[in-house]
């Protein structure tokens, strides 16, 4: 059985850079002057899509990226295009915060519109840490899902995909046919850096621009209400000890050992 070519969709999110420690200002995350980047797990998803094309000649017809977020999210789409993604869509949601359920519903429409048969995205975004979108999208599409992928391999004339995924205490192996949603874990690959030359070339690649109002059949009202956000209380100053005997005594005093 031969398979139609891959039309890969890679959803990406713009998040506060992973090296920056977010601070709370006036009951909101202070995001005025800090650096934003592509969500690291989504970066791994982009890299994997590009590698699938590099490794399997003629298998991939199109790699399309989509980002749902503020206008500035087009910066992360430019990075995707510079890394080898062909085309992209920005769904400009302005200042509105979207929950994963709404994001998954929008992505479902993008999947249908683009006739995608493989979606690869990060296992979670490092801002809200929800770890929801991939599984939700798979559910809404009635597609199988392979989350936390550590290895992806095409089998049997590319009609099947073998996925090794991270689970508590080890890993498990799945084999799926397409269409399929895959979410990426850290070990899958190490994303490439973008050369200035490719960044310049990417400026010529297309970004389709849509607005939330283009999806007015989808109710994006928030289901969860954030009552407060705060930084965790700092740990009280610890003590330094000078010998193992002192260490053992301190452990006993702290009731950490008998």
């Amino acid at each position: 059985m031969s398979m139609s070519k891959l039309r890969i969709l890679v959803p990406v999110k713009r998040v506060i850079d992973y090296q920056i420690r977010p601070r709370v200002l006036n009951n909101a995350i202070d995001s005025k002057t800090i650096k934003f980047s592509i969500n690291p797990f989504d970066d791994i998803a982009v890299e994997e899509a590009v590698r699938i094309r590099e490794k399997n000649k003629d298998l991939v017809e199109l790699i399309h990226s989509v980002s749902i977020g503020p206008t500035k999210a087009q910066d992360v789409l430019r990075t995707c295009l510079a890394k080898g993604v062909d085309t992209s869509t920005l769904v400009d949601s302005g200042e509105q915060q979207l929950e994963p359920l709404s994001v998954a519903k929008i992505l479902k429409e993008i999947v249908m519109k683009n006739n995608s048969n493989l979606v690869i995205l990060g296992k979670q975004a490092i801002d809200d840490d929800s770890n929801n979108t991939g599984q939700m999208l798979a559910g809404l599409l009635s597609w199988p899902q392979a989350t936390n992928a550590a290895k992806i391999e095409f089998l049997e004339d590319n009609t099947k995909v073998k996925i090794v995924r991270e689970i508590d205490g080890g890993e498990e192996t799945l084999i799926s046919s397409l269409p399929l949603v895959i979410t990426t874990d850290l070990r899958l690959n190490t994303p490439r850096y973008v050369s200035l030359q490719n960044m310049m070339k990417a400026k010529k690649k297309p970004i389709e621009k849509l607005k939330l109002s283009d999806f007015n059949n989808i109710d994006t009202t928030q289901r969860l209400k954030t009552i407060s956000i705060e930084e965790p209380k700092p740990r009280e100053n610890g003590i330094m000890v000078n010998s193992v005997d002192e260490l053992v005594t301190s452990l006993k005093n702290a009731k950490a050992i008998e």
Partner: peptide, 14 residues
Amino acid sequence: PIYAGNIISTIECT
């Protein structure tokens, strides 16, 4: 916790 535990959020579910 969000942001890898750097921020703690309290959420009401409606």
